[in-house]
Simulated assay, not measured.
Amino acid sequence: MPQSFRPQLSPLMVEDLVRNALLEDLGRAGDITTYATIGPEKTAHMTINGRDPGVVAGLVLAETAFRLIDPAVRFEALVKDGDRVAPGQPLARVEGTARSVLSAERVALNFLMHLSGVASYTARFADAIAHTKARVTCTRKTLPGLRAVEKYAVRLGGGSNHRYGLDDAILIKDNHIAVSGGVGPAIAAARAYAGHLVKVEVEVDSLEQMRQALEAGPDVILLDNMTSERLAEAVEINRIHHGQTPAVYAVAQARVILEASGNVTLETIRAIAETGVDYVSTSKITMAAPTMDIGLDSSLV
């Protein structure tokens, strides 16, 4: 991914997030282990090393952790967020007073390990469907307080972001449909409520519901827990509804976007994407991503 097109995080948001994590870790008395065992004159020259292959994410949060503890700590990134790295590859160098570096270490590594894990796991899903037009996208199933940075990591891994919250897009789910009286009435009410820049998506679990949705004209239809065969049928129904040839449909913008969801794993995503859907959403890339093994190797002076 070219550096100029990589996602960015707001420095204000990063600082608040990291500050709260440091306050949680340092508690009322600070790092009493480090204060008790290491004198203030000691300095540390450390290297952050990746021990797994994967995609790096979270360097800006790690750097902020050291800076907030001690602005004099020097942090030199050796790679960039979004870079793919090999096992054993150095990611950054950190130099400063040992007390400062060690007090920030755990918070810095926690962010770096978790977000690099999300980016790396997302990359595995994205790589599995790179031969299709579909993109893997995340959901609102994220760890509380970490949604923005987890979605940032998803993008670094080659994935796409779904809505960030309840306020930036309308997603009509099964309970909304049941209470509002059906697919058509729910979409009509959403269209009447939403501003012209707000997208409207509706979740359906049958092809009949999908046909009803197409008549009501949402921007996106979420095809929930359908087999690959049903998904392929849905793609064809969408194509016919918009009167497009297969070649035109593959690239056309003037049609309803189709998103597949449910039972998405590394083993199933390829078949799902090959049906012709536009997006495949899964919570696994944020909720089930293993952390990347990253350590801080030190040389105290």
Rank of each mutant, 00 (worst) to 15 (best):
F75W: 12
Y279L: 08
K133G: 10
L214N: 01
R106I: 07
A148F: 11
R67S: 06
D127T: 14
L68H: 01
A234H: 14
S120T: 11
V264D: 00
I257P: 04
N263L: 12
S283G: 15
A234L: 14
A72T: 09
K151G: 06
Y193M: 14
I240M: 09
I170P: 01
G96F: 07
H241C: 05
S206I: 09
I32H: 11
T33V: 05
D31W: 01
R211S: 13
A194Y: 12
A119H: 00
K42G: 07
A130E: 10
I269H: 03
S120M: 04
P144H: 04
D83H: 03
A44S: 14
A194K: 10
G39R: 12
R51D: 10
P40S: 14
A77I: 09
I38H: 08
V73Q: 02
L17G: 04
C138Q: 03
R99M: 10
E274H: 06
H45Y: 15
P11C: 11
D16Y: 15
G181R: 04
L266W: 11
E215V: 14
A213Y: 08
V220F: 14
V94A: 03
A250C: 12
G159M: 00
A108R: 06
N175D: 03
G262T: 04
Q8G: 08
E105G: 12
I269Y: 02
T34W: 01
F111C: 05
S228V: 15
Y279V: 02
L156S: 02
V202R: 05
A232G: 09
P290D: 12
V79P: 04
M13Y: 15
V136C: 04
P40F: 10
V235T: 04
I187D: 01
R163M: 03
V277F: 01
L207R: 08
K80V: 12
A153Y: 00
D83A: 01
A189I: 10
I257W: 08
A98R: 00
L222K: 09
M113F: 08
H196I: 13
A232C: 09
R211D: 14
D278N: 14
V256R: 06
P290W: 12
R93I: 12
P2E: 15
T37S: 14
A29V: 13
G54S: 05
E233H: 05
P290Y: 12
A252G: 02
T282Q: 07
G27S: 07
I237N: 02
L9R: 04
T265R: 08
E203H: 08
T37Y: 13
Y193V: 12
Y121W: 11
E201I: 05
D168E: 09
A21Q: 02
H241E: 10
G88I: 09
V256E: 13
C138I: 04
